[in-house]
Design a protein around this nucleic acid. Sequence first.
DNA 1: TTGTAGGCGTTATCAG
DNA 2: CTGATAACGCCTACAA
Lengths: 332, 332
Amino acid sequence: MTDDKITIDDVAKALGISKTTVSRAISGKGRVGNSTRAKVMEFIEKHNYRPNVMARALAQQRTFNIGVVWPCDYNAVDLPFFQRCMIGMSEITSSFGYDIVVSLIAGDDLSSLKRIIENHKVDGVVLTRTMVNDTPAMYLKESGVPFVAIGKTDDPDIITVDNDNLGACKELTSILLAKGLRKLALIGGSTNHIITRTRYEGFVDAFESMGLEVDQNLVYLDIENNIKIGGIIKTLLKKNIDGVICMDDSIAGEVISRCRDEHIRIPDDLRVASFYNSSLLESTVPSVTSLNFNDRNLGAEAARTLLAIIAGENAQSKMLKNYEVILKESTK
Amino acid sequence: MTDDKITIDDVAKALGISKTTVSRAISGKGRVGNSTRAKVMEFIEKHNYRPNVMARALAQQRTFNIGVVWPCDYNAVDLPFFQRCMIGMSEITSSFGYDIVVSLIAGDDLSSLKRIIENHKVDGVVLTRTMVNDTPAMYLKESGVPFVAIGKTDDPDIITVDNDNLGACKELTSILLAKGLRKLALIGGSTNHIITRTRYEGFVDAFESMGLEVDQNLVYLDIENNIKIGGIIKTLLKKNIDGVICMDDSIAGEVISRCRDEHIRIPDDLRVASFYNSSLLESTVPSVTSLNFNDRNLGAEAARTLLAIIAGENAQSKMLKNYEVILKESTK
DNA sequence: TTGTAGGCGTTATCAG
DNA sequence: CTGATAACGCCTACAA
């Protein structure tokens, strides 16, 4: 039962045939007699034979692993986005017999990424976000390893998979504008992240397509620490605003809390919406209007694309259009 | 600069010595002349030579990967716990030249775990939680692969690393009892997870050590879905309770929201505390009394232990004592 | 259809 | 201290 270390050679000898034939029977490459194949399959099934992946990796220079680059800045640590993406990726990779090697990168330290690339531990990489000065992307590009980035990028050589953040943010903003709101504030994270810029663009587009102009005094970007939000809210209130759009739900949660401190009623005194929704917002009161994306599906699509590239097919960048605008109490 | 496919043989030939010597110079095993070693080191530095891990893995039957089993039930998906643990593990494994292969397992489907084990893709495994019917643990034990579990277990053969959940939960409960609260409710998740049982034990211990008895009518376990919490709160309010202890902050957040619905003031009408704290609770109002553990450190310790086992040292189970009881507004 | 032999890049063994 | 040579387990021309 626990014949653990049985090799292809053992199989061959036991069956009185050559390793080559066994190999072919298993891989399906090359012609093998039906009866022979059946014999082999039955035997390996019975004895629970598994080809040694390391040996195969060495022989055909493939690892059947993909790398996933996972940012772990202070902010990203608690976001469920990456976890959800990974689940989607895992579903796809699993079904292709691939496994996932994670590479956590903090700040500019690419050493863990370099290690898995230089050591040939992966056949390709998924980058889970894009940045303005994207050192990981540049490194990967230079290294020649197949990779896919989740998020937008300027570089046409890089294959990306992304949600339609621009369209979604524009739509949500438009809805608020259509309600007659005009003095809308925007609070968002690091402008080093492309997604922050895209969300901002969507916000601006909504204004422009209605012939309105964004008041830059109401835009707060690079707010990487929720501590600052209390002050921002106080400042904003003096400016007599109609509503606040938060780029993610962590910011939204903080905004709601600080409003409560200031005895600001939502939505009566102020409307609040978020460009990203996760369970963080689930139990807030009032419930928050937000955008809902399918992160899992995004990850799955990224993995699918990467595997296609690895298989030699020429894949193209994709934009997933399915998102939901969830209108809740906070903007009534 | 981009001499990517340079092998040990290339190094040997370029230096006019044998592969063996180069190998020894790099690994440090076996005696090599100092001048020779220096030459080798200089050369590989300059030409950026990296030993092929796959070849090494094949030769010495080691992969320099560890597997991390990551549950992805509906509940676990958004918990930051696993992510934080993994960051801690990654810090340690990285410093030993190891990488992390994740195995997401949903429900009883062990296929991804089996794949990485049977394919010899990892040298050991970290199990990130323990269960009552722990099929992953049993499988690993049977397979003979070195592994460490995060969490408690009955099986003395299994090496574990865990926080002192029992002591922490007992302490927090004791503090509330010491404030004179007596009718304390408890809401928690699946009793299939050992941690739920441990937390419950801590709760009970606190009562017993004060000569009090737990009112089982106020204990709600196996609440795996926050939707039920609204009803529970309503029921509890009729029972005229003093406070609610939630096993994690997702539950706590929900409890607070539902209390607000019912116009219950916290802490005036009801005290609330949580056995686990994450950023989910960060911006709630009122701030919630809770236990604070260092998940990252927990992961690091687990990785350290696993690597020790892999290295052949005989490691022992560890309990990390450092946690914080954070007293906040919700129990004033 | 099947088998033989060589190679993938390292490490381990055993001589020198 | 150093070097051939044989594993490690699998794949793939090339032959038969």
